[in-house]
Structure formats: structure tokens, C-alpha cells
Amino acid sequence: MQIQEAHDLLDPTWPQVLIMEDEVSVAKGLGMVLSEEGYNVDLAMTGRSALDTFNQKMFDLLIADLRLPDIDGMEVIKQVKRRRPDTEVLVITGYSTVTTAVEAMKLGASDYLSKPFTEDEFLSAVKGALVTKEFMAADAAATPLEPLPEDSLRLTEVLQQIRQRFTGRQQEVITILQMVQNAVGYIPIEALQQVADFTRMPEAAVYGIATFYERFRLSPVGRHVVKVCRGTACHVKGADKILHEIEHRYKLSPGQTSKDRMFTLETVACFGSCAIAPVVVVDDKVSADMDPDKVGKVMKDLALNDPKFEPR
């Protein structure tokens, strides 16, 4: 049974969820809650039909009741995890005991919810389970990000320091722009004007410098900048595959920032850490010997430890 048809505009990039629950009213209710939030939901009333549906489609999350009319819910989880280990599992049940909870976790369930629960508890458990699948940062911001209110404050501060430290000669201009970018994260347009003023250079010349050098950015970045090294050693050891993985998982291309401002993806010509290639540099910390799997973990840890992180 599917309730997807009710939604005309389904976003295929949103998580696919399978709800396995034998009580029709509960199943439909949970299904409604999730599809209102934008998830793509399938329902299954028995363990067998759940496994059948599972065989036909890829799911990101299985929400499993343990008491079913035909097979044991645990058995379903076991089979699902064996076939596609990357499927997340959230267990819901009315007969919760510590032992069943532990058993479900051992099978790889990411959370456990005992009935009755509120809609909010349910939603946050679902989001929590999907965090591990990193759906939170999907969708890159197509247009440049808006500046944050604190940006102009930081700019004023750093410009003050610059005026004290430098004399305004042209040879200082690159160092000055570096300082601005380090303080604000990018070079705002008004900074270009002020730097031109201070160094007595034409604005066009300062703009020319800011656009010539690869390192300078003219628009805001996310809270974490992920840089994939594309040096020769990294290239022959699979840097492209790492880049594809990030592009695929977070729907980001180099130079883009995720909508939630969590990540900005960039590439760098070479970090000179070729002996431990391939490397990825996240917030100036070099991670050695990366592969598509490891880079996913590095980014997930970052997101989970970010104070502003909100699972969708």
C-alpha cells in the first residue's frame, strides 16, 4: 500500500522510508506525519510484505514494529541488514524490555522508541536515525549565500588591525586580503573598496588581484570548508572517487555550499602531503589515507559535533 500518490511533487533526493507496522491506523498515522515532512514513505503490514517491498526498492530507513502477525520483526531486521547493511533501522514497539532493545541494537538498529510516543519524539528519532545517512546537508545553495550579520562586525575589526599594522603600500595588498579572508571567511565587496582606498590602488586592480589568486573567495562559505586535494599522488590514488562521493552524498559541486551552511566543498591543486595520499583537508586539519568511506565518516563527525547542526 502506498500513500505517495497524495503528493504531486515528490523529491527523489529525500529519504525513502519503509514503515513496517501491523496496526493499520498506526501505520497510516506515522506515514502521514513523515510524508508531510517530505519523506517518501512505503507501508507494509506484515513481515513478508516488508521484505518483498524491500527487495523491489532501495530504502534509507526501515521503521520496524517487532510484533508482527507472520515473521518476527527481529528476523526482518536481520535480513534487511544482511542484504543492505547501510539501511538504517528504527525500532518501535509496545512491549519494550531492555533485552529486546539490546538485541535490536546488536543487529544494527540505530534507535529504539517505545509506545506511546508523541509526534515530535517520533520525528526527532527518525531524523536522528537518518543523520547517520547524512541527508541533512543535501541540496547545495545554488546562489551565493547571504552574508551573516556578524560578518560586517568582523570586517570592521580586521580593517582596524590592518590600518595599525600596515603602511598602505601596494606590496602589502595580498597579505591584507589574506587577513580579511582569514577573519571574515571571504572578502566582502566593501572590503575590496576599503583595501583599495588604504593602498591607494584602483578598485579594479584590487578586484583583479582577488580574482586572480585561487585562494581568495568573494562570497561567504559554510561553517566547515572541506578541501579535496587533487595533487598527482592523490589523483593516482583515487582522489576523484573521493570527490564524487562527496558530490553524490551532499549534492555539492566544488565551490558550492550546502543550504544549511554546514559545508563548503573546494578542491586544491596540492597540499604537499603526497606520501600519505589521498588527503582531504577539513577546516585546515589534514586527514591522511582517505577513501570514499572514510571521508563520509569525517564529514559526519563534523556535522554531529557542530553546535548549529539541525537534522532535517
Binding site: Q170, I174, Q178, I209, F212, E214
Partner: peptide
């Protein structure tokens, strides 16, 4: 500031003087 061509000596000097490399 991340320009490979600045390894070339005349480009490097242009960069030290605060110009495009």
C-alpha cells in the same frame, strides 16, 4: 595565494610587489 604560475620567477616577483602574478 594559490597561483601555480607564481613559482616562475618573474611572476613571483610581480606577486611580491602586490600585483597579479
Amino acid at each position: 595565494a594559490g597561483a601555480f604560475v607564481c613559482g616562475e620567477e618573474t611572476a613571483l616577483m610581480a606577486s611580491v610587489q602586490g600585483s597579479r602574478g
